[in-house]
Design a protein around this nucleic acid. Sequence first.
DNA 1: TAGCCTTTTTAGAATAATTCTAAGAATAAT
DNA 2: ATTATTCTTAGAATTATTCTAAAAAGGCTA
Lengths: 145, 145
Amino acid sequence: MANNKTVSEKNPLGDLRMTKQRKVVYDVLVEGAKDHPTASEVFVRAKELMPSISLATVYNCLETMTQAGVVTQVNMDREASRFCPNLQPHAHFFCSECEEIFDVGLKEKEAPTTPWALPDGMEIDQLLVNMRGVCPKCAAKNSNN
Amino acid sequence: MANNKTVSEKNPLGDLRMTKQRKVVYDVLVEGAKDHPTASEVFVRAKELMPSISLATVYNCLETMTQAGVVTQVNMDREASRFCPNLQPHAHFFCSECEEIFDVGLKEKEAPTTPWALPDGMEIDQLLVNMRGVCPKCAAKNSNN
DNA sequence: TAGCCTTTTTAGAATAATTCTAAGAATAAT
DNA sequence: ATTATTCTTAGAATTATTCTAAAAAGGCTA
């Protein structure tokens, strides 16, 4: 893909306005970069920075940013969506014990579709990988007991 | 008293009863093996075979069978869960144009985790892959226009 | 077979995340 | 400045799913 230094270089939302509310929501996400909050959790944190913000706005902002490709929406089962500002291609791992979500990156030189037998002509726009299991920390804790 | 074959040999639900309702729900799924119906869609089809069946029962049956590992629950974004009786490891592909869901199998000798840089000690119990894009049929249709 | 216990089904109420609505506020365009 | 567009907001509405409590079905033992 060619160099696309456009408006997006200045404003990660491209044509969309970077409003105060959107900034707050984005800041909340970046701040807690590792912890994948739900919309309601974002709402609680955003209220600390801007008490007047509403839940609907948080939903709007998250949706806008997801569309704009600035944040990623993580859906595990049918639980509340979670959001993260990690733009690198990555999978999400949910630990069944500590119930935390971890990002898992790609190995060097690997494409996420590698193992899959894609039919000829199938065009992939998006690939979403959710894993579930026990994280290293919890696994270690278990074997110590 | 002692049966020479284990229950699970006869009954894919193991210890759980294969009730009339469960049979109907399972049959509906196997029949439409390729089309990944939602619970409501299963309900509509099940009613044709057993008019007295209730939606709650369909949900119960689907849950039971998912637990038993006889069917797979497919969650795309936050849309209604879909169900399929394909037990082979496979990914799900959603075509943004015809809005159908396709199963995508693994290449020979590939593991679904291959491309991912899993931290040492991380135990994977389940891996879920959802793709989104344009299916070969729709892609072909587009280039003909 | 009767009696008892557990599992399953059922209709309808309840829940919870998300989206919608409509009006007002903020920003941009003319 | 005026107008047009985009955003925000509170609260209502939606929707898939789960819960509840009672009735029915199925299995087990005597």
